[in-house]
């Protein structure tokens, strides 16, 4: 499927590296997995791959907004920040760090010229094979749930991939 032989071999080598030759860092997987992702989900076909993508939490407009007063609503909501998945998030003008940002290793999206219209196709989290599988599965499930809550997906839904060393789990 267009994935070069050397890259297939490299992935195979990573999978077969075992406990002793296993890469020290999960980042050793990033390049090869990014390579495979971009080979299949090409820019030409309308996809984009986001490394360390951010899933921001949905927030309601400021509490100072009084329901029923449309002028007040519009002036306050215009200050809200909109994510690339069209989620109303905390405005940048609010002081302090934004709470609860999730950051999966990669997100594969259907993109477009709009800054707020990305649709999530895959969420990929990569861990070394010796890491806690249960914790990792909880983490990716949390990411998928947050992604689903954005509604930014096509009818075929969102798939989470947990790469745990030589094994990949589909969520």
């Amino acid at each position: 499927g267009g994935v070069p032989v050397w890259l297939r071999k490299r992935l195979r080598a990573l999978c077969n590296s075992g406990a002793t030759k296993r890469p020290h860092f999960e980042s050793s997987w990033y390049g090869p997995i990014n390579g495979v992702s971009y080979t299949v989900f090409t820019v030409k076909d309308g996809f984009i791959i986001k490394p360390q993508a951010k899933f921001r939490d949905k927030v309601s407009p400021p509490s100072s907004v009084i329901p029923g007063r449309s002028n007040s609503v519009s002036s306050n909501t215009s200050n809200m920040s909109t994510s690339s998945y069209n989620v109303e998030a905390r405005p940048r003008t609010e002081p302090g760090p934004e709470a609860d940002i999730l950051e999966p290793d990669f997100v594969i999206c259907i993109a477009g010229s709009s800054l707020t219209g990305d649709k999530i196709v895959y969420i990929i989290e990569i861990k070394r094979g010796d890491e806690d599988a249960f914790k990792a599965s909880e983490q990716i499930t949390h990411y998928v749930k947050r992604a689903v809550s954005t509604g930014a997906m096509i009818s075929t839904g969102i798939v989470g991939l947990l790469v745990l060393g030589s094994e990949t789990f589909r969520i």
Binding site: G1, V3, R8, V36, S37, V40, F41, D45, G46, I110, V121, Y122, I154, S155, T156, V159, R170
Partner: peptide
Amino acid sequence: IQCFLDRKEEIMKVMPV
């Protein structure tokens, strides 16, 4: 890789051009 290829095919069918 096969998973990716299958899903891409599926997406290209429903994706607006």
